[in-house]
Every structure is written in C-alpha cells, then in structure tokens.
Design a protein around this nucleic acid. Structure first.
Length: 414
RNA sequence: GGAGGGGUCGCAUAGUGGUCUAGUGCGGUCGCCUGCUAAGCGAUUUCCCUGGGAAACCGGGGACGAGGGUUCGAAUCCCUCCCCCUCCGCCA
C-alpha cells in the first residue's frame, strides 16, 4: 500500500509508475476524488462531535432535544465516512508499488536484464535425462501414486528422493542461520484471514488459496505470509533492527494451470516446500539489504555448484509489492531450461504499511514504517530438480553434492 | 466441547453512566544535584485521523480486545464475536 500523501501530492509520479508497469492508472483519479470527499466529510463529522461534546457536558436536560438530532446527524455522517474509508482502503490496496528508478523499463519477462551469471551451464557428455525420468528410474519420485492420493499435480517422493529434499531444507536452514545471520522461525502453516490481507494475498488472490471454511483458516502459499505478520501492529525499537528471519514451510497453492511444459514433472505442484528469508530493516538500509539478500541466495546456489543467472525484473514483470526484484535462475540440463529458484524483493514500506509494522528511530521520535524484504533461499522442488539433473551420472545414478553428503548420508543416489 | 474468571497508555494497576482532558506506580526520556555509581529532586511520557505550519509545534476529532446497540452523554449498561487464564472432558 502506498502512502496516500504521495498520491495526493504527486499523482503524476504514481501514474507514471503504473504506466511503466503497463497497468491502467485510472484508479488514481478515483482515489483523489474520494480523498477530497472523505476529508470534507471528516471535517463536518468532527464539528458535529464537538458540538455534542459541548452540549452534553454543559446543558444536560435542556440539550436533550438538540442532542437527539445531533445523534442522528452524527450517525449518518459516520456511515458516510465509513463508506468512504472502505472505498479508499479498497482502492489503495489495488495500487502497486513504485519501482525504484534503476529498475529497467520493459513490457514483460522478455525484457528482464541479466546482471550477472555464475558458473557455466552444464553440458553433459551423455544424454541428460529430465528429472521425471530420472526420478522414476531411481524410484524416488512417484507421480502415479501422488495422483492416486490427491489428484493432478501431486507427487510422492520416496526413499532417497524424500531424503534429498529433507537434506536440502536442513542445509539451507543451517547455512542461513550459521553463516548468513538469519534467525530460524517455525511459523503456523495456517493463518487467520487478517494475515492474508496483511500480506496482500486477500482479497485479490482468494481463488489461489486453500482455505478451511469451517474454522476460517487459510493455508500459507509462502512463509512470507506468517513472517510478514509476525510483527503486525508492533512498534519496534531502532536497535531491534535489522531483523533477519528464515523459515521453512510447505507452501500450498491452488493456481489452476493447464498441463504442459510449465507443469511437467515436479516443477509446479499444489504443495511444495520452500525456505524463505525475510528482513525488517530501516528505510535507509533497504537498498543495500536487497543486495545482501540476493548474495545470500546466490551463495546457496554456489555452494550447491549450480550455475545460475541473476536477472533484475523490468517494470512490466516486477511484482505488485516490490520496488526492485532479482530473480535467480539455475540451469538444469535435463529439462533444458533455467529454473527460477529464488526471487528476492525489496518491498520498501509497502507491506509494512499494510501490516502496520513501525519502528522508532530514536526513543522519543515518531514511529515510522520499516522496510521489508523477502527472498527464497531456496525454492525446493526446483532446486531438487536442478540437483538431480546437474549431478546425474551416465549410469543413471545421481552424485550427491558435497555440502549435502552429510545430510543425505550417502555420496551417490542409485 | 462444558463451567467459571478476565482483556484499560511499554509493564503493573485504579476506574460500575457526566468530576476521565483515562488516574497512580514501575520503566523510558530530558534536566538538576551529587567530583564516579547508586540514590534524590523536577519535568515529560500512547497511537490514529484531520486542519494550520518549512519545521518545531498548535487546534479539532477518535481509540479502554473487535463490531453493533441503549443514552442528550458509555472504559462503565446490553448483544455478538475474538483472545487469554483456571477447572472438567477429549486427544497426537
């Protein structure tokens, strides 16, 4: 959510940002209109309330008649202001963040800019198999039984397949906590409705979320949701910042996609695992923190020996809440594509304003919004795919990357 | 799931229809004093919206778990919901 003051004082800037995102900016004029209307009504309402206050404390019985009339006027005016508040809120929630000035202009993902690469995309001197074939041959991925249990886009990891995934999770968490300065969090995987609103999932993406109607619990689609809400409605001390969290969660996403290249294998299921990194920082440090966050995610890929590229997303592809985003894609020789394993974003104060997370720069200063950042470290099924396909051997076995060997308890999966 | 108790300013508490402009203590902040520290003394101390102002600040309104209601007037009375505590039941 943007600060209404920015929209009020500089609507051109906001419209321009929306144009760059290739989104209609018509909504801004609606917001300006409602803003004016709302403030006029608030002014009237405050006047009426002031009169009520005076009357009821000075004139008592005499004032009863005027008081009754006032009550009705106030109620009507309150209704009007509430309505405008709700409309305003609803519209503000639909305005995307303003991309940072160094974000490249572009219409869609074809215009993202590769800022650096690491390693050489692996070329195997034998025919590389895609993970769905490797997985079945080694009996570590079972697609049919996944479908038997839960339907399309579910799978079962078995034996060393399950073990390899667990090893990756444990390794990521250990790396983030022991070497990169993050604090591990084990959050709930189901949260209340208001957390979904705070994290920006509701109301817009309701159809993508699994939800228990009876208890009104919502299943998280990413650890970002509980982490964002962890400090909701809190005022943090300046010396609490920065806060660096990481968390493993399963992620549940309903998104209906037609079968095809994008959903082949285990690339995109309704349930997947992810380790997420999340930061609460002071505004003046967030740009730099994004660079560090991205380096942490890259470091994770490097330690696994996976070649990758880092791309800065252009204005047409960057997410709704972000001012700047880097995607990290690792090369996977079996399915022959770059797999997005991490997306690192600086949301600035956009999410903090929704969730009302503030801090006090000095003990007696006014509270102001923190900046938040999030990044995958890393997304699992895809990292699993990349490891399987990059480390496959001519005999169909999979060598275990060195850093994972102690977690897997083996040097090769066969 | 059942019975009872409770949610007030960072923490602890007072407040049972107008004197609440929410008091007090602790903590915090600033100052004074004490050659350090502790203690003492004095002042200050929530957040949101809104108007004015470059700002410091000033004026108005709102918020006592949330939302409704009663009333000229609600922290206080009524209703619904949420959360916490104690006991019972159930349970990995």
């Amino acid at each position: 959510m943007l600060d209404i003051k920015i929209i009020r004082e500089n609507p051109g800037l906001v419209k321009k940002a929306m144009d760059n995102r290739h989104e209609s900016s018509a909504i801004i004029d609606d917001i300006l209109r409602i803003d004016t209307d709302r403030r006029q009504n608030i002014s009237k309402l405050d006047g009426l309330r002031q009169e009520r206050k005076t009357i009821s404390s000075t004139e008592r019985e005499k004032a009863q008649e005027r008081g009754r009339a006032l009550r009705e006027e106030i109620q009507a005016m309150e209704e009007e202001v509430n309505k405008l508040d709700a409309q305003m809120q609803d519209l503000l929630l639909q305005v995307p963040n303003i991309p940072q000035s160094d974000v490249p202009l572009g219409k869609d993902d074809t215009e993202n800019v590769t800022v650096r690469t690491w390693g050489e995309p692996k070329k195997l001197n034998f025919k590389a198999l895609p993970h769905w074939e490797l997985g079945e041959k080694l009996d570590i991925i079972d697609f049919e039984r996944g479908v038997k249990l839960s339907g399309t886009r579910f799978y079962v990891l078995k034996g060393m397949g399950a073990r390899l995934q667990r090893a990756l999770i444990a390794y990521f968490l250990d790396l983030h906590t022991n070497e990169q300065g993050y604090r591990e969090i084990y959050p709930p995987f189901m949260v209340k409705r208001e957390c979904m609103v705070g994290a920006g999932q509701l109301p817009k993406f309701a159809e993508n979320i699994y939800h228990d109607a009876e208890e009104d619990y919502w299943f998280v689609g990413t650890a970002e949701i509980p982490l964002t809400n962890l400090h909701r409605d809190e005022i943090l001390n300046a010396d609490d910042l920065p806060i660096h969290y990481c968390a493993y969660t399963p992620c549940f996403r309903r998104e209906k996609m037609s079968a095809g290249k994008d959903t082949r294998g285990i690339k995109r299921g309704h349930q997947f695992d992810k380790v997420e990194m999340y930061k609460f920082v002071t505004p003046e440090t967030s740009e730099e923190e994004l660079e560090k966050l991205t380096r942490n995610a890259e470091d994770t890929c490097q330690k696994l020996g996976l070649a990758y590229r880092v791309r800065v997303l252009c204005t047409g592809d960057i997410g709704f809440a972000a001012v700047k985003t880097y995607d990290i894609d690792v090369w996977s020789p079996g399915c022959e594509e770059w797999l997005e394993v991490s997306s690192c974003s600086n949301d600035a104060d956009f999410q903090a304003r929704r969730t009302n997370v503030r801090y006090r720069p000095t003990p007696d200063a006014k509270p102001q919004f923190v900046h938040t950042l999030n990044g995958s470290g890393l997304g699992l099924p895809r990292t699993l795919i990349a490891v399987m396909e990059n480390y496959q051997q001519p005999d169909g076995s999979i060598a275990v990357p060195e850093v994972l060997q102690k977690y897997v308890g083996a040097k090769v999966i066969k």
